[in-house]
């Protein structure tokens, strides 16, 4: 980071509340470069598709075997042979391609996807991801493609609320839930702040509706600020 280069935008966005779910999705969409190949995880990350501008040239991958997936199917468009990884009926865009599961996961594991966006139970400041299993004794473990996605894409974005409903931080020094992948997350987009995570720890890129110092106190985590102040 070079503080003498062009000035960074303000880190704190105050005078507003935390981001809504849609605003989080829009925030993630802004960081997806033109022409990227992207996988959006099941659940909240699928909202990102609604915020990719027309002409962004982003090609969506669904791991059950399709590139250039279109929006969810409406009544009358539903084809039981055309679903996404969440088993929701979807549509195909011109230029779509279909392939089998081994090819689909090979393109993921082989580093051909630019970005995947995943939900999470917890992310550690080193970029460890926990999003598949609570570890509860009576829980039935079910992993799906989460582990393949976590280690496969060139960049892994997590989109989640920063705190549980009970107010417990989900960005943590060490994950206490079983891991999905080790050191695999690059960025964490939350309602209260956006973070860069990795071997250098967690860096706050921006906050929403909360001053940096309050955020640091609520997280109880070693943090740095992107603006270096």
């Amino acid at each position: 980071m070079n503080p003498t280069s062009s000035p960074l935008p303000p880190l704190e966005h105050l005078g507003r509340g935390p981001l809504t779910e849609d605003e989080m999705a829009a925030r993630v969409a802004r960081d997806i470069p033109h022409g990227s190949y992207v996988n959006l995880g099941i659940g909240r990350p699928t909202l990102v598709a609604d915020h990719l501008p027309g002409g962004a040239g982003v090609v969506l991958h669904t791991e059950n075997g399709m590139l250039n997936m279109g929006p969810a199917a409406r009544d009358g468009q539903i084809d039981p042979d055309l679903i996404n990884a969440g088993k929701i009926p979807v549509t195909e865009l011109p230029g779509a391609a279909y392939f089998h599961h081994a090819d689909s996961f090979a393109m993921m594991r082989g580093g051909h996807l630019d970005i995947c966006v995943l939900g999470a139970f917890q992310v550690s400041s080193a970029g460890d991801l926990a999003n598949w299993h609570t570890g509860a004794a009576d829980a039935i473990p079910a992993v799906g493609g989460a582990m393949d996605l976590a280690i496969g894409a060139k960049r892994v974005f997590v989109m989640m609320t920063l705190f549980t409903k009970q107010g417990v931080p989900k960005l943590v020094p060490e994950c206490t839930y079983p891991l999905t992948g080790v050191g695999c997350v690059d960025r964490v987009y939350t309602d209260f702040a956006t973070f860069q995570v990795g071997p250098g720890g967690a860096t706050v890129l921006e906050t929403f509706g909360i001053p940096y110092d309050d955020l640091a106190q609520r997280l109880g985590l070693a943090l740095s600020r992107q603006d270096g102040t």
Partner: peptide
């Protein structure tokens, strides 16, 4: 599963395919 009448091996989806 909860009655212990079936064994489960969970495999990541891409690993299963491969």
């Amino acid at each position: 599963y909860h009655e212990g009448r079936i064994d489960l091996e969970v495999v990541p989806q891409g690993t299963l395919a491969e």
